[in-house]
């Protein structure tokens, strides 16, 4: 039961969504774009999120795209995680994303959670961003000032840096990245459903490892300095990993009900070892 009231509209096109947003804003209504809506509903129930209106972007055809054009894979922001994992093309087109999103929440919830929703959420893990970070994906954004395409690295700094009225329509990813050798691992406290202690997505490109992490800090990240250490092949694996972990300011490593800071660091070490090993960089 959601204690607050808000107005719901479904947008049929990008233009209509933008127009609606503008209309609500001029009436002084706080507005959110709504995709899967799972996080909006759960946080609103607990008084942790409030708004006057939501604009559902699911009906927008451009946000439902799943296609390859000139070796670029375009994925609509309103695709559900289940659609991404079950799409017959995905195991070849972007297997890393497929396996990564398949570990988020549970099968039934993934029928509702969308790619865009996971990327833009408040939940600190946002694991769908990991494959995009290591694959240098491009983000297609619609907003009051028209459409734009930005590198994920410019637009995602700890959280999605969207301006008022903007929303993600699509993610575009080049073949060279999405078809590269990859590795994904998610370590939980226990069991097969739940948030990560550490989850990692990695690819090997031109003998270098790209890796992005969630669960370690209160935001997902990819660190070039960390990768530089991990890719110092003349050093022993143990040292590469220790140096890479040293990059993370200790106080930024989470210490909570999922795991203590010290144990997280241990898990991170094992995850990095496994990643290097699996991607032939050990």
């Amino acid at each position: 039961m959601i204690p607050i009231d808000f107005q719901y509209v479904a947008a049929q096109s990008v233009a209509e969504a933008i127009r609606q947003y503008h209309q609500f804003s001029t009436s002084d209504m706080s507005t959110r774009y709504y995709s899967g809506g799972t996080e909006i509903i759960t946080l609103a129930r607990l008084h942790q999120l409030t708004m006057d209106a939501v604009i559902d972007i699911k009906p927008i055809p451009a946000a439902q795209v799943c296609s390859i054009v000139e070796e670029k894979l375009f994925l609509g922001a309103a695709l559900t995680l289940s659609q991404i994992t079950s799409h017959p093309m995905m195991s070849r087109a972007f297997p890393l994303l497929q396996v990564a999103v398949n570990e988020i929440a549970d099968r039934t919830a993934r029928n509702k959670i969308t790619l865009g929703g996971n990327l833009c959420g408040d939940i600190i893990y946002r694991e769908a961003v990991l494959p995009l970070l290591v694959c240098d994906s491009m983000v297609r954004i619609a907003g009051p000032n028209g459409a734009k395409e930005e590198s994920i690295h410019r637009i995602f700094r700890r959280t999605m840096q969207l301006k008022p009225g903007e929303f993600i329509v699509q993610i575009a990813t080049d073949k060279i990245y999405r078809c590269a050798p990859f590795f994904h691992v998610k370590r939980r406290k226990m069991g097969k459903v739940g948030y990560p202690i550490v989850s990692a997505a990695a690819i090997r490109l031109q003998d270098n490892i790209h890796i992005a992490l969630s669960g370690v800090c209160s935001f997902p990240f990819r660190s070039r300095t960390m990768e530089d250490w991990l890719n110092q092949k003349h050093l022993p694996v143990h040292q590469r990993i220790e140096e890479a972990i040293q990059i993370i300011p200790p106080e930024l490593i989470l210490n909570d009900y999922e795991a203590s800071r010290e144990y997280r660091r241990f898990v991170l070490r094992t995850v990095l070892e496994e990643t290097l090993h699996q991607l032939g960089s050990a």
């Binding site: 939980r188 226990m190 069991g191 097969k192 459903v193 948030y195 009900y257 999922e258």
Partner: peptide, 11 residues
């Protein structure tokens, strides 16, 4: 339940 783990099917 999402942060209080409990046996699910398959555990």
């Amino acid at each position: 339940f999402r942060v209080y783990p409990i046996h699910r099917y398959g555990d």
